[in-house]
């Protein structure tokens, strides 16, 4: 059995949008046989040159504004084995806390040289790395004076049907974490799993600060090629 205690409850009323978007009926468990169905995987040929470099993949005429970051880590199963060829997709606000999305109404400036979306496939050990700029905090309408902490959205697709995770990476030391109902929806003991750690060892001299974020997907005692 895998640990089911790290995920937030679907009904988390402090995050208001969950109130009418969470099922009332109990979820019905499926057998291991169905969860172990393999997911279609992607090869490196689907990636474009700067897909994993958000500082370059939308550049028009200048560097995007903000503090350059290198975000790296491994995608693992619960046995600690790296998952190769996992698809890691990311999206985020720019340095001013503004998303490119048309529905965004926050009046912070857009950056013409920054889209805020990227993707990467994990290597043979499950490792990934991408470059970006530090996202800004931004206000949202959940409650009075609500601000989202600095975060990067992650969508991770592994090798089995149940190895599918959408989550958010947060930054160590962010004071807004204490006030954010999305982050706080996670059981207290598991919140640390969403916080990227600063890594001086991986910082690139003269170029970018580094943060490590490891991602653990569900997965049982098997590998794809056994």
């Amino acid at each position: 059995m895998t640990d089911q205690s790290t995920h937030p409850p679907l009904y988390s009323p402090a995050y208001k949008s969950t109130i009418y978007r969470s099922p009332k009926e109990a979820l019905i468990p499926v057998s291991d046989r169905l969860r172990d169905r393999s997911m279609p995987a992607y090869g490196q040929s689907v990636l474009r040159e700067f897909d994993n470099d958000l500082t370059k993949n939308a550049r028009i005429n200048a560097e995007p504004i903000g503090e350059r970051l290198k975000v790296f880590g491994r995608v693992l199963d619960t046995n600690g084995r790296g998952i190769p060829n996992a698809l890691v997709e990311v999206w985020q606000a720019n340095a001013a806390g503004r998303y490119v999305h048309r529905a965004e109404i926050h009046d912070a400036p857009l950056d013409p040289n920054f889209l805020g979306a990227g993707r990467v496939l994990t290597d043979a050990e499950g490792g990934y790395v991408f470059y970006t700029i530090r996202p800004g905090a931004y206000p949202w309408g959940n409650h009075y004076n609500a601000w989202r902490p600095y975060h990067i959205h992650f969508s991770v697709t592994g090798r089995f049907l149940d190895q599918r995770l959408v989550t958010q990476m947060y930054f160590v030391g962010d004071p807004l974490l204490n006030f954010d109902p999305v982050f706080q929806s996670v059981p207290p003991h598991a919140r640390e799993l969403l916080i990227a750690q600063f890594s001086m060892d991986n910082t690139e001299e003269g170029f970018a600060l580094a943060y490590e974020f490891n991602i653990v997907l569900n997965g049982r005692n098997q590998t794809l090629f056994e």
Partner: peptide
């Protein structure tokens, strides 16, 4: 060996479209 704990899920939020379904 101790099992690793699965990374908690979080909402996809309202702004995924330009990344996940851009075209």
């Amino acid at each position: 060996m101790a099992k690793l704990r699965p990374t908690p899920s979080q909402t996809v939020g309202p702004f995924f479209a330009y990344g996940l379904t851009a075209e």
